[in-house]
Design a protein around this nucleic acid. Structure first.
Length: 105
DNA sequence: TATTTGACGATTT
DNA sequence: CAAATCGCCAAAT
């Protein structure tokens, strides 16, 4: 298994409950700031759905991935709200609020 | 080894 | 504001 995917998985697992992270951010933590695409690719494989909260991962706009297909954007929205994340009707989250945990990493 | 592809990002039209 | 385009990187075939 490639070290890169491994890094991505660990990074996603590190996301605190009630917080979210962007693909680019995970890519940055994984060691490649530009590999945001690969992050999505890795999560798409999702070898460990029970430990990998993909619903906490959103795109740069704080918007739920349009091509998201793990059950529908509504599901992700509900999951995030259940964890205390405010989600707009369009499925937009406040990155300014939920990205602040990153500076502690 | 080379080509294709994809849960993205940022910029331009 | 929405669609199109280019750039980026690694995995899959």
């Amino acid at each position: 298994m490639s070290n890169f995917h491994q890094r991505v998985y660990e990074a996603v697992k590190r996301i605190p409950k009630g917080k979210v992270c962007t693909y680019g951010c995970i890519a940055l933590m994984a060691g490649s700031p530009k590999a945001s695409r690969v992050v999505g690719y890795a999560l798409h494989h999702n070898p460990d759905p029970k430990n990998i909260p993909c619903h906490r991962v959103v795109n740069r706009q704080g918007r739920l991935a349009p091509s998201f297909a793990f059950g529908g954007a509504e599901i992700q929205k509900q999951l995030l709200e259940y964890e205390g994340v405010k989600v707009s009707d369009d499925g937009i989250v406040d990155l300014n609020i939920y990205m602040d945990w990153i500076k502690f990493n």
